[in-house]
Design a binder for these strands. Structure first.
Length: 877
RNA sequence: GGGCGUUUAGCUCAGUUGGUUCAGAGCAUCUGCUUUACACGCAGAGGGUCGGCGGUUCGAACCCGUCAACGCCCACCA
């Protein structure tokens, strides 16, 4: 069959992906093999593939395919995340375009819309993953809100509640005034803001004069219930025991003393607003201060504020500044930079707010999750993230798990008419518990009201490695026992707390064992200027378009070439070009081989026999190196080694060596060996570039229906099989060949014109002289005593080689070149001699090192002698 | 404010317990080449005082100290 001179990925990718699916090659069932399990970090169900997914899933696919070809039962479980807050926001926005407000809908009506949206957009991203070749077991596709996962979440919540680890209470939480929900600490991102520091005058009661308070939030003065000074602050000592009047508001509040206040900051006076600041809340608790909540849930001022009611908090800030100035109560305004917390999802400023929420106690969970990472039971790659992990666990706070959203797992708590609540999986069970708890046997289900809140999305994702195998509802089932703990987790360091740490907690709490053995942290994909890729910057290429342009294999390779573990990758489409070029190289190497006519009787040339022996050794050595890189999760390095093996060793050296003369046939032995090498190379490259390797592997021989490269095993190599001497001799061959090529280039002698090569002063020919002759087109290689005067010479090791050139020689240039080399060697010799004459070196350095230096000296001296003789003979010419 | 990390060729990175000629790779650059597998190619070449300073050592890109730049994480100074 005729193959095109350029590889066209779009022809083959869809074909082989369908073939793999049709033959169920991605599917895994427990069997006697060693399991290799990966669970996908579930992308948002309504998400669209971006470069980050591309990187992350390429790495997973490489690991999974590699494990499969190492004989393991590889199982990669895909799925999506319901992404509570993000998805709810999208649904709210869509409804808004249809003129529907969320508040106009019932919970059930809203959820109907949300499910419609999910069914419409859900799974787009999973379809996209197929384009890049992801070998997921699609029959296992899960959703964090499907039946099994939802049941797991509820069961877990109830279990933790029954263990006393979940509690409900009014606490200061991070409130998102746009999404109208509480957030966990992890969902708040602090950003620096250029704002202002306002100095407000609080009149001292029954006295002349003011206490000056510095604040960044003058709009909260309506919530002030105290002023606080440091007891050791001399400049504010006169305020002790006094009362002050809140400006504009007119409320009289006490001056309290606490050493929390920083004497140096501002004026040393702090206004205390217990309802709207975490620290003030703490002071409020300590001194039993009243708490006035002046904000509505949406960030507007509430009735309780008494002023500016209904206005937005930021509008109020502008207005109140004017009003304070008008009233003469503004001392001054300074420019000030501070950090303000923003909602990770909606990007609005967080409002600290007191509210009733559900919390999970973290002390116990943090404790069981720390050691396994610190002692490398679970390995982090790169290990530097262990520090970050430890720091978080050692300073952990309770996890606010409730969200005031509808899209998510509803909290399985039922509020009782007489106050209090019960926690149960179903309303019936709740009723039973309620009767027991209250002693009221007349209660009915209608009397119970299920808590309106739902749970943080991460409360389902933290169970993922267990719930995917139904290990919560159905502990000890065959699948969980076989696939758990999973092998490798591939994810970004940005979710180390959200997800990785919590999965480790859940793993130990519910399985008594780690959820995964290794965590590979990818970097962030940035553009080549180092900016994070984002929609708003428009600097993120569409991965699907890249695949169409360069082929999935090309894009995969492009990503991996630049992706060392834990380092950000600076992505440039030029990398995909490199990937595409490599595909084309592989394609054409195969075109060359398959175009040869095989002669069954033809004897094998010695040079081919040597080439096969050499490449066998090279292949084995390189396979071991690739294994080594994989074991350290250095996937880019593994790919680079494979790349060089194919391009340099196989294509540039091996194929050139065995290539028959134009239109001449090749002998059968060499041909067979070459096909076998090619197949082995396809196996090595397959995890990185699955499509082209499958395509060509299917070409090399007649294959049975359903047979695939995917399920072949890569050869196991024993390091003792490798002939090191052979490899070393061949390196010398390469250097000699380079020497001759350099002569050709310099003198502009075409490859067609044959040359001769002389070894000076050696009695034996170099190893593999037939190989050298073939590659360099030499008519002879001979050892001679005396130099030919009209020859170009070069040195390899301590041997001098000469290529007689007759009239072509430029004697002066040749002499100049040799003299330069002699000068370099003399300088080198000098430094070696200096070292050797240093007594302290000779006495202290290990004998082997000293011997090496002596050898260097001897070699340099002999080289110099040889070159000087050559120069002398050239001078005669 | 605390903690961690990075700094090696134009770019992205290797460099294992300090010792084969103070340095390697890929890409990029430059020079040749219409050599019938591939110009998405072939053959070559150039390019680094290993962030600065100081120290330990016979010997430092590697160990120690210090400074600087950049990055990340954490943190309740309004």
């Amino acid at each position: 069959m005729e193959l095109a001179s350029k590889y066209n990925p779009s022809d083959v990718e869809a074909k082989w992906y369908q073939y793999w699916l049709d033959n169920k090659l991605f599917s895994s069932k427990p069997d006697s093999r060693e399991p290799y399990t990966v669970v996908i970090p579930p992308p948002n169900v309504t998400g669209v593939l971006h470069m980050g997914h591309m990187l992350n899933n390429t790495i997973q696919d490489i690991l999974v395919r590699r494990a499969r070809m190492k004989g393991k039962n590889a199982c990669w479980v895909p799925g999506t995340d319901h992404a509570s807050i993000a998805t709810e926001a999208k649904v709210v926005n869509r409804l808004a375009t249809q003129g529907i407000k969320k508040s106009d809908l019932t919970r059930d009506e809203f959820l109907k819309h949300a499910w419609e949206w999910t069914d419409e957009h859900g799974g787009i991203i999973l379809k996209q993953l197929r384009k890049l070749g992801a070998s997921c077991d699609w029959d296992r596709t899960a959703f964090t809100m499907d039946e099994v996962r939802s049941k797991s979440v509820n069961k877990t919540f109830i279990d933790l509640y029954n263990k006393g680890l979940i509690y409900r209470g009014v606490r200061m939480v991070n409130w998102d005034p746009k999404a109208l929900t509480a957030l966990s600490d992890e969902e708040v991102v602090f950003k620096e803001e250029h704002s202002q520091l306002f100095y407000l005058r609080y009149k001292i009661e029954n006295e002349d004069g003011y206490a000056i308070v510095a604040t960044t939030r003058p709009e909260t003065i309506m919530g002030d219930t105290a002023m606080c000074i440091n007891p050791n602050d001399p400049k504010n000592a006169h305020l002790k025991g006094k009362k002050v009047i809140v400006p504009l508001v007119g409320r009289v509040i006490p001056v309290i003393e606490d050493d929390y206040v920083d004497i140096e900051f501002g004026t040393g006076c702090l206004k205390v607003t217990p309802a709207h600041d975490v620290n003030d809340y703490m002071l409020g608790e300590k001194y039993n201060l009243p708490s006035i909540d002046i904000f509505n849930d949406n960030g507007t001022l509430s009735e309780a504020a008494g002023m500016y009611v209904g206005m937005d908090r930021f509008e109020v800030r502008k207005q109140i500044v004017k009003d304070l100035e008008a009233a003469g109560l503004m001392e001054k305004i300074e420019a000030y930079t501070n950090k303000v917390g923003f909602s990770e999802r909606t990007d609005v400023a967080i409002e600290p707010k007191l509210s009733m929420q559900w919390f999970l106690k973290m002390e116990h969970l943090a404790k069981i999750a720390l050691d396994p990472v610190m002692d490398d039971t679970i390995q982090f790659h790169p290990a530097k993230y262990k520090n970050t992990y430890r720091h978080w666990l050692e300073n952990i706070k309770d996890w606010c798990v409730s969200r005031q959203l509808w899209w998510g797992h509803r909290i399985p708590a039922y509020l009782l008419p007489q106050g209090g609540f019960v926690v149960a999986e179903t309303a019936e069970e709740a009723l039973q518990l309620a009767k027991e708890k209250t002693g009221d046997t007349t209660l009915t289900i209608a009397d119970l009201r299920q808590d309106e809140d739902c749970m943080d999305t991460w409360f389902s994702s933290w169970l993922w490695p267990i719930s995917l195998f139904d290990g919560i509802n159905n502990p000890d089932n065959e699948e969980i026992n076989y696939y758990y703990p999973t092998s490798d987790l591939v994810t970004g360091p940005d979710i180390i707390f959200f997800w990785v740490a919590r999965m480790i907690m859940a793993g130990y709490e519910y399985k008594g064992e780690m959820p995964f053995k290794n965590v590979y942290f990818t970097g962030i994909v940035r553009d080549k200027q180092g900016r994070k890729m984002s929609k708003s910057l428009g600097n993120s290429p569409d991965p699907i378009e890249l695949i169409e342009q360069y082929g999935a294999d090309g894009v995969r390779m492009g990503m991996m070439l630049a992706a060392p573990a834990g380092n950000d990758i600076l992505f440039d489409v030029a990398l995909c070009e490199q990937g595409r070029n490599f595909n084309n190289k592989i394609w054409n190497a195969y075109r060359l081989v398959q175009g040869w006519e095989v002669d069954q009787i033809l004897a094998q040339p010695t040079s081919s026999k040597i080439a096969i022996e050499w490449f066998t050794a090279t292949l084995h050595k390189t396979s071991l190196e690739i294994d080594e890189q994989f074991s350290q999760y250095r996937i880019s390095e593994a790919l680079m080694i494979a790349y060089k093996l194919f391009w340099d060793e196989f294509s540039s050296w091996y194929l050139e060596l065995i290539k028959p003369a134009y239109e001449k046939p090749i002998d059968a032995v060499t041909y067979q060996a070459t096909i076998a090498f090619f197949e082995e190379l396809m196996k090595i490259l397959h995890p990185f570039m699955p499509f082209i390797t499958e395509e060509l592997w299917q070409h090399t021989q007649e294959r049975k229906e359903g047979e695939s490269l995917m399920t072949q095993l890569v050869s196991v190599v024993d390091s003792t099989q490798i002939d090191q001497t052979l490899l070393q001799n061949f390196e010398t061959v390469k250097q000699i060949v380079s020497g001759v090529r350099a002569v050709r280039l310099q003198k502009n002698i075409a490859q067609k014109e044959s040359l001769t090569l002389k070894l000076i002063g050696k009695n034996e020919l170099p190893s593999f002289d037939c190989v050298i002759s073939k590659i360099c087109n030499l008519s002879s290689i001979a050892s001679v005593e005396n130099k030919d005067e009209t020859a170009a010479s070069f040195m390899v090791g301590t041997t001098e080689y000469a290529v007689p050139l007759g009239d072509l020689i430029d004697v002066d240039a040749e002499i100049k070149k040799l003299e330069e080399e002699v000068n370099y060697l003399k300088g080198f010799l000098l430094s070696v001699k200096k070292k050797l004459s240093n007594e302290r070196f000779v006495n202290n350095a290990p004998a082997a090192v000293v011997a090496m230096e002596q050898q260097k000296q001897a070699d340099a001296e002999s080289k110099i002698t040889s070159l000087q003789e050559t120069i002398a003979s050239l001078n005669k010419a």
